[in-house]
Amino acid sequence: MSPSVESGATFFLAIENSRFAARASAEGKEIRVKMTGSADMDIKTKLGQFLGAVHSYALSREIKDVHVDFQEVAFINSCCLKDFFNWILKVQDTTPEQQYRIHFHSHEARAWQHRSLHTLSSLAHDLVVVGF
């Protein structure tokens, strides 16, 4: 899981197993993360490392916005959800100058996403933006 260059983006990172995939790319002061499938115990360790790497990259490049496309995520268990909670708590722990916003883009018809993303935004209203 090492950074590389893809399609003109300055950063690329990906994880996947048979049921879940996540990839990140960046241009300028923005990171875009695309996730698909179901995240459960099998991908938990990799997901934590992935989000940790996104956070480290964001700090090193003074990123201001991270967009997470959640629309094709079918399910996330509580263990994997914890990795998102920890990510947000890490951003909260940085200085105001280092902090960046995390925008979650959800699927309008996936009711569970609204509930889980509401919890994420409840952790840090000023850092987490949820939309379709």
Binding site: S78, K82, F85, N86, L89
Partner: peptide, 17 residues
């Protein structure tokens, strides 16, 4: 829930959530 999320951040085994 928010309180338990913060407590869980230090937990190594599972989420407890």
């Amino acid at each position: 829930y928010i309180q338990m999320i913060r407590e869980s951040a230090c937990r190594e085994d599972g989420s407890g959530l």
